[in-house]
Each structure stands twice: as structure tokens, then as C-alpha cells.
Design a binder for these strands. Structure first.
Length: 364
DNA sequence: AACACGGGGTG
DNA sequence: CACCCAGTGTT
């Protein structure tokens, strides 16, 4: 069977794509946001901001971006830093594999590319932590190439503009969205077009209550014409998240508490925490805490409260116990386990749940 | 409590 | 290719 020429019918645009770019660029000139990473076209800054913005809001990113740049003003400085310092500056942003990948990518840019970021798609995507969308953002914003992006904001804008009623994460929808994104990306001023369409999604074409009357694309928008703007994109089916019960031990030796570093791979990789353990089915938190304390040379276990913390795929119910260090134990006092007093604890890259635990302890 | 948010890894 | 994994802030 002969393959029919031309694109699949669904990718045919109901309007002139240059009209979308024209309207967006005009709107962006008047309404675009002034953000720290938009004051330069330095690929390092664009890359850093895009990686931080994966899974994170602009408001949360700004202070991290500024602090990070102050410590690591260029890719060479980042590559030369120990991983722990990078994770420390990342603590609180979440998705810590991003920090590990950032560090690994910086080292490869320095070692394999002489400190210059690749200016082509395959070169960028070969770096850890850079997928097609982040590569597109770097190519367009830093290198002014007409490369499409498809982040969450753009995905939502396109779902509405084309009234896509399928689940946008399905593989078919994903292909369509990338095709549309490519057709809409102009050859002129791609470095302005990319932030323009991202800003539209962030400020007007918002997940809830989109501000269609002020949208520069309103007259072109299929969802608006069909009265679907508020209902698109369709929500992905949600799964029930399990609840996990754990205990954390605030083991005191004088004014100091014992903290341990998590393995670099996996959940909360490289972050610090108080010793903790899952409460086995059928066991009590108290007994679990007492057993944990005994292993670590602690005694006199007392409950001091609880914190709850929501992760992407489970909820944590964390019971806190304090205990006194009474006996020498096999606790390693090496790189991954330390006794620290309050000032050092406050500076430590503790993960969110145990930061809450520390605050609760300070309050009580 | 529900939702939003890219990339990596596995089978 | 389809599916799973992963943290925090906002609403």
C-alpha cells in the first residue's frame, strides 16, 4: 500500500500558523514577564532555569536560581563543585535526580564540549536531564533556532487552541502536539516565541479559569469556539495514593542529634534525614522506634509528635520519637552519619518531611 | 484534598 | 511502546 503524501489530516492547521506567532510576539512584547533568566541568552542560564522549572513553579525557582548562580556563575564552576554542594543548593526544590543530572551534564559539557553547550538537538538530548522539550527551549531561547518546545504550559495552550479532546499524555496525542508545536514555531524570533507561548500558558491560558477575553489567540482558539476552554485538557485518570507509616528517631547525644545521608540514587537521593524506619504491618510505631533506637545505642524512647508529608506517589505519616544515646553502638560516624547540633542542623540539606520534624521539635 | 509539573528507566 | 517513578507549592 502506498503511503499517502502529506501530513495526517489531523495535523492540518485551521489557520495560518504565522498568525499565531504574530499575535503571540505582539502580546509578549507588551505583557511578557521579566524573569531573572530572561536578562541573558547565556545557554548555561537558560539550561539551569529550564531544569529548575521542570516540575516547579516560577515563584519557587527564582530564589534558587539566584543563589545557584551566585555560587556557580558558569558551567565550569558547577562542574568543578562536589555533588553534595549542588544537592545542598537544590534542597527543597524536589525531584533530586535533577540535581544529580545537572551536575553530571555540567561535567560532560566541560569535558566533552570544552565548556560550550551543544547547539543542536541530538547533542543537547544526549546530556542527562535534557529531553526534547528542554533541548527545544535551549535551542530557541539561547541559540535562536526554530526548535519547538512542549512543556506543560505549551501543552495546555495547544490542547485548547486545537480543541484536543484526547488524553494529552497518550502517545498519539503526544505526536500530534509535537507536530503542531513544530508548525507553529516561527523562523523569525524563535527566542521570543518560546517564552511568549510559555507565558501565555502561565498567565492567561491557565489550568483553571483561563482569561480568554485577554488572550491574543482567542479568535483562533477551537476550544473557545466550542465552549471547551475550561474543560480542556482532559484530566488524566488519577490513582489512589497509598499511605505509608514510618517512625523517625531524634537520637540525642548532649545537644547533638544523629543525622544520616540517604543514598544518592533513589528517593530524596543525597539528602539528609534522621534515622527512620517503616512500621511493619502489625507492629506498633512505638515498638518500631524502640527497636531502631536499640540498634543505634539509644534508650528512653518517647513520642514527640507526628508530621504528614505528601509525595507524588504516596503519603507519609511520620511519627517522631526522641531517645537518649546511652551506649556505644555500631553507628558509623563517617561521611554518611553525623552528630550535629541545632545551628548545623538548620543548614543541613534535610528533606521536607524531616525539616518539618525539626521545626516541630524546635517549637516544642 | 486535588492538581500541576519533564525526564529517566524498565519490560 | 506503554508504563512506572518522582517532591513541592498552589488552589
Amino acid at each position: 500500500m502506498a503511503k499517502s503524501p502529506g501530513p495526517p489530516a489531523k495535523t492540518l492547521l485551521p489557520f495560518d500558523p504565522s498568525e499565531v506567532a504574530r499575535r503571540l510576539l505582539s502580546w509578549y512584547g507588551a505583557a511578557g514577564r521579566d524573569l531573572p533568566w530572561r536578562r541573558s541568552r547565556d545557554p548555561y542560564r537558560i539550561w539551569l532555569s529550564e531544569v529548575m522549572l521542570q516540575q516547579t513553579t516560577v515563584e519557587a525557582v527564582i530564589p534558587y536560581f539566584e543563589r545557584f548562580l551566585a555560587v556557580f556563575p558558569d558551567v565550569e564552576r558547577l562542574a568543578a563543585a562536589p555533588l553534595d554542594e549542588v544537592i545542598g543548593l537544590w534542597a527543597g526544590l524536589g525531584y533530586y535526580s535533577r540535581a544529580r543530572n545537572l551536575h553530571a551534564a555540567a561535567r560532560r559539557v566541560v569535558e566533552e564540549h570544552g565548556g560550550c553547550f551543544p547547539d543542536f538537538l541530538e547533542g543537547l538530548m544526549a546530556l542527562p536531564g535534557i529531553g526534547r522539550s528542554t533541548a527545544g527551549a535551549i535551542l530557541s531561547i539561547a541559540f535562536d533556532q526554530p526548535a519547538p518546545i512542549l512543556d506543560g504550559n505549551v501543552r495546555r495552550v495547544l490542547c485548547r487552541l486545537f480543541a484536543l479532546e484526547d488524553n494529552p499524555r497518550s502517545s498519539g496525542a503526544e505526536k500530534l502536539l509535537w507536530a503542531w508545536a513544530g508548525k507553529l514555531t516561527p523562523d523569525e524570533r524563535p527566542h521570543d516565541y518560546a517564552p511568549a507561548i510559555m507565558d501565555l500558558g502561565a498567565t492567561l491560558c491557565t489550568p483553571r479559569r483561563p482569561d480568554c477575553p485577554r488572550c491574543p489567540l482567542a479568535e483562533l482558539c477551537r476550544a473557545r469556539a466550542l465552549g471547551l476552554a475550561e474543560r480542556l485538557p482532559v484530566a488524566a485518570s488519577k490513582k489512589a495514593v497509598p499511605e505509608v507509616l514510618r517512625v523517625a528517631l531524634l537520637l540525642r547525644r548532649g545537644a547533638e542529634l544523629l543525622v544520616c545521608r540517604r543514598p544518592y540514587r533513589g528517593l530524596l537521593g543525597g539528602l539528609w534525614e534522621f534515622p527512620d524506619a517503616e512500621v511493619p504491618a502489625g507492629a506498633s510505631p512505638e515498638a518500631t522506634a524502640a527497636a531502631l533506637a536499640a540498634r543505634l545505642g539509644g534508650a528512653e524512647v518517647h513520642g514527640v509528635g507526628a508530621v504528614r508529608h505528601a509525595y507524588s506517589h504516596f503519603r507519609l505519616d511520620l511519627r517522631l520519637y526522641r531517645a537518649e544515646f546511652v551506649a556505644a553502638s555500631s553507628v558509623a560516624e563517617g561521611e554518611d552519619c553525623r552528630w550535629l547540633a541545632a545551628p548545623a542542623l538548620a543548614r543541613l540539606a534535610l528533606h521536607g518531611a524531616h525539616k518539618k520534624a525539626l521545626r516541630l521539635l524546635d517549637a516544642g
